[in-house]
Design a protein around this nucleic acid. Sequence first.
RNA 1: GGCGGCGUAGCCAAGUGGUAAGGCAGAGGUCUGCAAAACCUUUAUUCAGCGGUUCAAAUCCGCUCGCCGCCUCCA
Length: 492
Amino acid sequence: MTLRVYNTLSAAKEEFVPLVPGKVRMYVCGVTVYDFSHIGHARANVVFDVIYRYLRYLGYDVTYVRNYTDIDDKIINRANRDGVPFHEISERFIREFDHDMVQLGLQLPTIQPKATEHIPEIIALVQALIERGVAYQAGGDVYFCVEKFDGYLKLSGRNLEEMQAGARIEVDERKRHPMDFALWKEAKPGEPFWVSPWGNGRPGWHIECSAMSMKYLGESFDIHGGGKDLIFPHHENEIAQSEAATGKPFVKYWLHNGFVNINAEKMSKSLGNFFTIREVLDKYDSEVLRFFLLSAHYRSPLDFSDQNLTEAESGMERIYKALAGSAEFAGGDEIPTDLDPQSLTDAERELLAKNAAFQERFREAMDDDFNTALAVGHVFDLVRSVNRVLAESGRERREAAALLAAAGGNIADTGSVLGIFTSEPAAYLERIKARKTAELAISVEEIEGLIAERGTARKAKDFKRSDEIRDYLLARNIVLLDGPQGTTWQVK
RNA sequence: GGCGGCGUAGCCAAGUGGUAAGGCAGAGGUCUGCAAAACCUUUAUUCAGCGGUUCAAAUCCGCUCGCCGCCUCCA
């Protein structure tokens, strides 16, 4: 089995072969830290977190770099608005971003560089571009000369003429070509600046990623990722700057994730139709959100809605209930390690077969351009078999215990790559219940009091009163479950 | 205007040449005092529409319709 990835550069799925065997160097464009991150940022970061995890699962030694853009017009604007120095804004929202990523269960990238801490590297790169004759100074600005780079627009598959025809931006008189972009921007009065050969100024948006990625990963590396909206101009310009400076291919595989939509429209700051990560985590468990984000292929658009999140929550509950049920089989008598299919029930044989095939099915799904949606489908398929054994085999069947433990292990392995199913099943279910209970208009004391009363009524075969209580609670979103160990309750 | 993507059941969603995964919701059954949960069965002769290529197409080609994205900052 080999990993195949969709490469934006070739517009096709390609076999993944790292430049250095056994090692993967990957760079993902992080956020501009001027405000809270929204669900779109969550998706991009979760997607690349899963890619990072899967590459390591495959045994690669992965160096993962994700930057913070901590100097930029939007940060300066916000700082002016709030009347504070720009770094107060960027430092604050770096902390907030980090907090959100922890909440989402992301593993830390190997390196998280900041643009402002790499000004010397940026200046050196700009200087190299000027020396090579592909960049020029205009006043205190420095521009990249797009006509000097043959491969310009090879990533987005456009051409300069078309781009200009639809251009919506006013052309700066000082540019030699309307599409030339800034490598270095002169500081206006009152703006933060760094001293450079071209006067006081700050880096353009694109150059930081070229400088930092090449510093940590070398002039050529394996994977560069980000949202689809970064293909043009950001990544296009990164290619131009980097390859013009080094004369070497910059990145082998370009990976881009699709957007999160609201009512089929892209979630974005400018449309104002966004939800921040913390808003959503206030309402849904972080595993539910991750699960939702991974329920579609990473390149597809994904529609964010309460209904879809609620469905994801139901799905997660189904999986955790199966895991919780399996856990009850653990312990007790010794679990056999060698199973004779002859001694198994139909349901157990089915689970034996699903367990045996599981890892390969999971890898096949993930090898196909990180198809997490298919992988999740396989998990549900396994869960159905688990539930069947749970429903049919008694706890005295130690063969069943062995099979359920193996299934639990398979789901945990998947979860370690997807970053879900990582909680103790009982703890997860309690967590969800507590979250739902907090929204109820009825107290736990009242619920439990009524359940006790109903228990007495049931013992006395007073089913009228018993059903009355159940209906009363059901009307308040409380579902009762009568079991051999008594009655438990859930929030609908 | 240019370039690109998408359209699969009530909803979400895999599937890019070999005869439609999975989830949610629904229906029937088992279980239950009755329920719930779980299990079993069931729910697209069909993949926006129309043509074409092929022994064979949701999958390839063409056209039409609809939706979205990029071309300005954006994950």
